[in-house]
Design a protein around this nucleic acid. Structure first.
Lengths: 331, 331
DNA sequence: TGGTGGGACTAGAACGATCTAGAAACCCGA
DNA sequence: TCGGGTTTCTAGATCGTTCTAGTCCCACCA
């Protein structure tokens, strides 16, 4: 029924416009060296035929490929926000984006090799879990930018958020409100859990307060079980590893009959989409996904086009105070 | 510092193994026509050099491309679950997956054309918003499978979940518990909002009950505002358009001092990841993402490999009863 | 002994674009 | 009218594969 028909090629357009393939190529990629009149003629013929350049062939031939490979974790909602922003950043610099997800049963190396096989001119990896050696291996083939993780060795670029500054803001905010008994529910083995944990310890120390840390993780469930072990000795404020963890903490506290922020203040991290939901109104440390994504794309493009050496960009996050943090109840 | 080095090609492997390119090609794609001994020799040389076939070239040359294009919405968490499952399904049938997201400022047509430009042999679109004509246009180039939407015209395949059956289960479940005053918070203009609304009307009718429908939408905010307009005349149960909407309804009810399910039962749709969270325990109609994804991939591959005509696969969802639905409070 | 059939292998043309080098056309002043 | 420089255009090689159409060799059988 539906006859699968061949899509038009450069050749077809050239034929229709009565010029050579090479000239059509010049016109299509907006290169200099074509008269305005023929340019219009070719463009017209292309539109007429519904011609779209074939990126396989284009990528294959040209060494400068204008293709960025982006790997992300399908299970992390925050990554989706970055993907979204990365598209905008990439197109504004005239690049295409190839996506590859790390999913269940699909390890990160597989995701990355697939991007490489498609001819990505650079790789952007969101919170990569690979070792320095593995990263360096890929960096030997194309520029690699690590996003949200800065401990990546000398061979790769990184764009990350200053975890220490973020935690400092969180601690300052809470102590400023009058909190003394603050707990950090950490991220367990998740990427950037270590620096945040260390920063929390240092900042509490700086304030002359005891740094109490409860093992947690990046999901709601982790937050819930962490909060359960809080009951015995209730703090006045909690800094969670991320928003999802914070949500788990809040729900667990609520289930125990406690009010947020009246009884306990809770602070998240990421300022993800759902932190902004009207019923949650979660106070959170914002890493600003669009800015991070843009920085990573810029970094990748600069490395492709220039001959700069790897660098580590660190952005300072900012605090977004909403409704889950308040002054502690006078005891 | 990091010397960007050219990756090995067929030529290099051929040279190392002392055979022709063509033979290496034969060995690499496991085609018949090579002696076992040379096969091992070639494989050894390839491993030695770290050779990986270049999919750009491979895709360009072969008409049978083994590449499925998948478009999804970066803002829909449920789509991420399908993406995850689709990878597994695709690899098990020996296909690669190319991803393209519909993001803010990146319309669906752009996402799809990019998949086409990469040489996808078929397209799987998750809840496409295109018109029948546009879909048919793409179907003229490659097989197209619509996922989660079945009203797509004759030219494209569809794999969807039986919305009517899902709503029937929901209504039967609630009436079985003794509910009579049931409200549907609909999905507004979202894909599959219409069939669910119609099904609700029909099923309530069948039970001889009044079908009350409140305008809603696919997000938590939609659920919240819908629930607010419920206060005046409180139903005993709510069937929400999806899980996120259900969550908004629940939070709004809670904020009004009502208990779920004691005062009002709430049922979601999708059985997404977070419906399963221990603090939510949302009763929901499950569309079973892995099964849907597998069915879509199967359909696409069958169409590529065989010469079958488009078909519409409808899967029956099932009800997952958790903790947000219960018998109504005796009035 | 001489076909013949088939397995193992290869040369060279494709795929659809870009790139390089050079030809043709044009413009302008001497 | 002609030379020289610029602009416009084109032929042909090339990217790394797959595919087609062979060649070569050897075993088998009449």
């Amino acid at each position: 029924m539906t006859e699968q028909q061949r899509r038009p090629t450069l050749m077809d357009v050239a034929h229709a416009a009565g010029v050579s393939r090479a000239l059509v190529s010049i016109v299509m990629r907006g290169a200099p060296g074509a008269a305005e009149s023929t340019r219009q003629k070719v463009l017209g013929a292309a539109r007429e035929l519904g011609y779209r350049p074939d990126s396989r062939a284009r990528l294959l031939r040209s060494s400068r490929t204008r293709l960025l490979g982006l790997s992300f974790f399908s299970a992390h909602a925050f990554h989706a926000e970055i993907v979204d922003a990365a598209y905008a950043a990439a197109t504004s610099r005239g690049y295409e984006l190839a996506l590859s997800a790390v999913a269940s049963g699909r390890p990160e190396t597989r995701a990355i090799e697939s991007l490489l096989d498609f001819g990505s001119a650079a790789l952007i990896m969101i919170s990569p879990t690979l070792s320095h050696e593995e990263l360096a291996g890929y960096a030997g083939q194309v520029p690699v930018v690590s996003l949200l993780r800065n401990d990546v060795g000398a061979a790769v670029d990184s764009v990350s958020s200053d975890d220490h500054a973020g935690i400092r803001m969180a601690v300052d905010h809470l102590t400023g409100l009058g909190h003394r008994r603050i707990v950090h529910v950490d991220g367990g083995t998740a990427v950037s859990a270590d620096p945040r944990r260390a920063a929390f310890r240092a900042e509490m120390d700086r304030h002359g307060l005891a740094a109490r840390i409860i093992p947690g993780g990046p999901t709601e469930e982790d937050g819930m079980s962490a909060a359960r072990s809080l009951r015995a000795d209730l703090p006045s404020a909690v800094i969670a590893f991320n928003d999802r963890c914070a949500l788990g903490v809040i729900e667990s506290l609520r289930a125990g009959g406690l009010k947020v922020p009246d009884d306990v203040s809770v602070l998240g991290y990421d300022d993800s989409q759902f932190a902004r939901l009207s019923y949650l109104q979660l106070s959170s440390v914002s890493q600003d996904a669009p800015l991070l994504a843009a920085a990573a794309v810029d970094r990748a493009v600069d490395r492709i086009e220039g001959t700069q050496t790897p660098a580590h960009v660190v952005r300072t996050p900012h605090l977004v105070v909403r409704k889950t943090t308040a002054a502690p109840r006078p005891s």
